[in-house]
């Protein structure tokens, strides 16, 4: 609620609702941009052009797509559990949106400046798992339930490396509050946690390989958390049709889709806040201020979203056993090593 004090507004129910709706506006705009980006990047990687006919280079296509989704019939399968089927997309989106509450978009805006920001985001993302299980079960379709169970297993497994990687950043910065974590990293690119944070030089050189490795693993784990290629087993089109959202259409499908895209930004935002300096400018004091901060934050977040898209259109899908192998036998042991090393260096 800093923003309210910042612009001198009275704190009542209306203003609170308005301020908490700001991330929603951001998510909607971001989803439009990312839909376009995803199609364009995928097309150009394959030497194609993607949409060219709706507006200049097809910029109006996302609007057309969304308009189509909105006016599509909202079908519920006859054998489905109507109530849970209808509820599931909203549970998924609520889980994602709750995470945005603790994301510091700028030095002047954070939905809720709670002290346990990152911890809260991890907890909120578990709501997404439940929503996906709900949708998969309620569809009463074998593809949906397989997709849902795979999704839940995957998200629960990859929560371990994610949490460990977050723990390392928290050990270095000494706070779970993303706003404080970001402030710790302000003052230029050399203070970012991925480059060792603002530690003395010798410690920094020692810690550097571990922080780089941690950031790398966090990024891999977060791709798995949002169920994107190469970890898109829950939606594996070639085997499961569409996974948990096979039976969904129209508005409810759009909710799942929006939640997936919002989740992509959410995990990028967590990685940016913890490791890439959050909203702080890479040039120290230059180019900073509430609006510049917003720009840097969104730019860094969008860069990671772009990398996710880039990976998606490069790599094929993993097998289930490879997925579990990656999480439990590669990422987690390496992170234990990093936790140990970083702890040791910090104590020295």
């Amino acid at each position: 609620m800093e923003l309210l004090q910042h612009i001198g507004l009275e704190q009542n129910l209306l203003t609170i609702v308005l301020v908490s709706a700001l991330p929603l506006v951001f998510i909607l705009l971001y989803a439009l941009v990312t839909l376009y980006l995803e199609m364009k990047v995928s097309a150009h990687i394959q030497d194609r052009l993607a949409y060219m006919r709706t507006g200049w280079h097809g910029v109006l296509q996302p609007f057309a797509d969304i308009l189509k989704l909105l006016q599509k019939e909202d079908t519920v399968p006859a054998a489905a559990d109507r109530f849970l089927f209808k509820l599931a997309p909203f549970v998924v989106f609520a889980g994602t949106y709750a995470g945005f509450a603790a994301i510091p978009f700028s030095s002047a805006y954070i939905g809720s400046n709670i002290n346990l920001g990152v911890f809260f985001i991890i907890a909120a993302s578990s709501l997404v798992v439940i929503g996906i299980l709900m949708g998969g079960w309620a569809s009463n379709n074998k593809w949906s339930i397989f997709g849902a169970i795979r999704s839940a297993a995957q998200m629960v497994s990859y929560e371990i490396p994610t949490a460990l990687a977050i723990l390392i950043a928290v050990m270095i910065t000494g706070s779970l509050n993303l706003q404080e974590v970001t402030q710790y990293q302000s003052g230029g690119i050399q203070n970012w946690v991925v480059f060792g944070g603002s530690l003395p030089l010798t410690q920094k050189l020692l810690i550097l390989p571990f922080t780089l490795l941690t950031f790398f693993i966090l990024f891999i784990a977060s791709i798995a958390e949002v169920n994107r290629t190469p970890f898109d087993l829950p939606e594996a089109e070639s085997e499961l049709v569409q996974g948990f959202n096979t039976e969904y259409s129209g508005m409810r499908f759009a909710m799942f889709y929006l939640a997936e895209y919002a989740n992509m930004f959410l995990v990028s935002a967590v990685a940016v806040s913890l490791f890439l300096g959050g909203w702080s400018s890479p040039f120290g004091e230059a180019l900073s201020g509430p609006l510049w901060d917003l720009f840097w934050f969104v730019a860094k977040g969008m860069f990671l979203v772009f990398v996710q898209i880039w990976i998606r259109w490069t790599l094929p899908r993993l097998r289930v056993d490879q997925l579990m192998y990656t999480s439990w036998k590669v990422l987690t042991p390496f992170l234990f090593l990093c936790v140990f090393a970083v702890g040791l260096i910090l104590v020295l």
């Binding site: 907890a123 909120a124 578990s126 709501l127 439940i130 299980l133 079960w137 839940a152």
Partner: peptide
């Protein structure tokens, strides 16, 4: 509160549903 969400919703409830 957050531990409640993380442990019960993220862990135990998922286990129960499974």
């Amino acid at each position: 509160a957050i531990t409640q969400l993380l442990v019960y919703v993220g862990g135990i409830l998922v286990l129960v549903l499974f």
